[in-house]
């Protein structure tokens, strides 16, 4: 079966990201296909490259990054949500003349159409957080 995941919850404030990641791993472990993970609302903070959590807490951004590297699953952050919240890749930081990039390169900035596409092309779109 073809799955897609939407993450609306911020890391550390909400259980949603960790549950989504566990679900994503389970989807692949069971031999299913994972089309995409889409981060919307506060979910875009999952890609915050500058997060520096205490050592005895999960490094959620790092876990996503590792997951993307291992699995090759694309991780998309909504451009409108990301820009509002200062989650910028190099292109956007240049465009808006901001001094630093904040988005981990494992994440890609794209449009809301990617969420709609997930709803259309996946057999199941599973949402975490809201």
């Amino acid at each position: 079966m073809k799955f897609a995941i939407a993450v609306y919850g911020a890391p550390f404030s909400h259980q949603a990201p960790l549950s989504a990641l566990a679900f994503a791993r389970a989807v692949l472990a069971e031999g299913h296909e994972l089309l995409r993970i889409f981060f919307y609302h506060d979910g875009v903070y999952n890609g915050n490259a500058n997060a520096a959590p205490p050592q005895d807490e999960p490094d959620i951004r790092g876990m996503w990054s590792e997951f993307a590297l291992e699995s090759g699953v694309e991780m998309i952050v909504c451009v409108a949500s990301a820009l509002r919240r200062g989650m910028l890749d190099e292109t956007e930081a240049d465009r808006y003349e901001k001094s630093s990039t904040t988005l981990d390169p494992a994440f890609t900035i794209s449009g809301l159409g990617q969420l709609i596409d997930a709803g259309i092309n996946a057999d199941r779109l599973v949402t975490f957080g809201n």
Partner: peptide
């Protein structure tokens, strides 16, 4: 919360595809 506004945005975007 921003849910309402982003839900409307998503619905408008969705209308282009489905």
């Amino acid at each position: 919360s921003i849910n309402a506004q982003e839900g409307l945005d998503a619905m408008l975007m969705g209308s282009a595809f489905a």
